[in-house]
């Protein structure tokens, strides 16, 4: 939805101020409150839903499938489905790729191993974005975090050693004996290493306006941003992916008029909204995230629980 020049000018000047003045007076590192629900889909191994105050909603379901002779890289499959947007368009593909790489590089795949050489679990993480007004990356990332936190995998009762004699995996009937994906026990069982628990990774999109970095940008803030930064967070520090995106149009909210306008600007050789950014700003974003992300993880951990949730 296009804004009037007056609105854009007001927003930009407010956001570029030092310190920044956001439309809802938030601090640069303050997120908007979200609604969360977990564990409400008994047919999945883990499920979660996040709703944001601007009407965004994402439901994630995690299902585990036993696979044989699969390479380690294929054990995590993330698919993001955005309502109203075709699956093969850039936005869902970008989100799926970013999240898949992030989770795969952060998880110790021994958690998914079943037998020494042949069998393992493959996790299908499907995220359904029912509605969104701003770039949905934050939304999906938070939902996937909560879903993974409550994911449980059945306990293997057949032998894990199948190097000589192949055996189809058999699992315990009792769900009470299932193991939390993020817990320590599953790692100790499968690989004999220490029982360390795993905190799923997160990925954030930050808006850059002038010299200011803003977390959890609203649709308005995104429209006037110079550019957006995608930064991952895992194991207590900033991690890949690290990307620069054009937030104003990446959300898929570009009107046909704006698209044709951009097209003609490109043809004339005019630089689009997206300006380059300085090293200083990237470092600023880095330290902002380093200071803020631990609290986000703490808030999520406090919410996550093993009990069954209800959606409403």
């Amino acid at each position: 939805m296009p804004f009037s020049p007056a609105e854009i000018d007001y927003l930009r000047k407010s956001l570029q101020a030092t310190p920044t003045i956001r439309p809802d007076a938030r601090e640069p590192n303050q997120f908007r409150p979200v609604d969360a629900a977990q564990n409400f889909l008994p047919a999945t191994n883990g499920s979660a839903r996040i709703r944001t105050s601007d009407g965004g909603e994402c439901i994630v379901g995690v299902k585990a499938k036993v696979v044989k002779n699969s390479s380690v890289d294929e054990l995590i499959a993330v698919e993001v489905d955005i309502d109203d947007i075709r699956d093969d368009s850039p936005l869902p593909k970008l989100l799926s790729a970013v999240l898949q790489t992030l989770i795969l590089s952060s998880i110790d795949t021994n958690r998914l191993r079943l037998t020494r050489s042949n069998y393992a679990f493959k996790l299908h993480i499907d995220a359904l974005v029912l509605s969104h007004t701003s770039f949905p990356l934050n939304l999906v990332s938070l939902a996937i975090f909560l879903a993974l936190k409550c994911t449980r995998l059945p306990l293997l009762v057949s032998s894990a050693n199948d190097e000589e004699h192949e055996e189809v995996p058999v699992f315990s009937d009792d769900w009470e004996e299932s193991l939390a994906l993020c817990g320590g026990e599953i790692l100790a069982n499968n690989s004999g290493s220490e029982a360390i628990s795993w905190t799923p990774p997160l990925v954030f999109s930050l808006a850059v306006v002038g010299n200011n970095i803003l977390v959890d940008p609203t649709h308005e803030e995104e429209s006037v941003s110079d550019l957006g930064l995608i930064m991952g967070w895992c194991n207590g520090q900033v991690c890949a992916p690290l990307r620069i995106i054009d937030l104003a149009s990446a959300g898929g909210n570009v009107s046909p008029e704006q698209l044709s306008q951009q097209q003609s600007m490109l043809e004339q050789g005019i630089d689009l909204n997206m300006k380059g950014t300085s090293r200083k700003l990237i470092m600023k974003a880095y330290s902002l995230l380093t200071n803020t992300a631990p609290e986000v993880v703490a808030a999520l951990d406090a919410t996550a629980d093993e009990e069954d949730g209800a959606l409403f």
Binding site: V34, D35, A36, E295, A299, F312
Partner: peptide
Amino acid sequence: MAILTIQKATPRE
């Protein structure tokens, strides 16, 4: 000021 507040869905009445 909380960085992020998360509300759990209220149980049905």
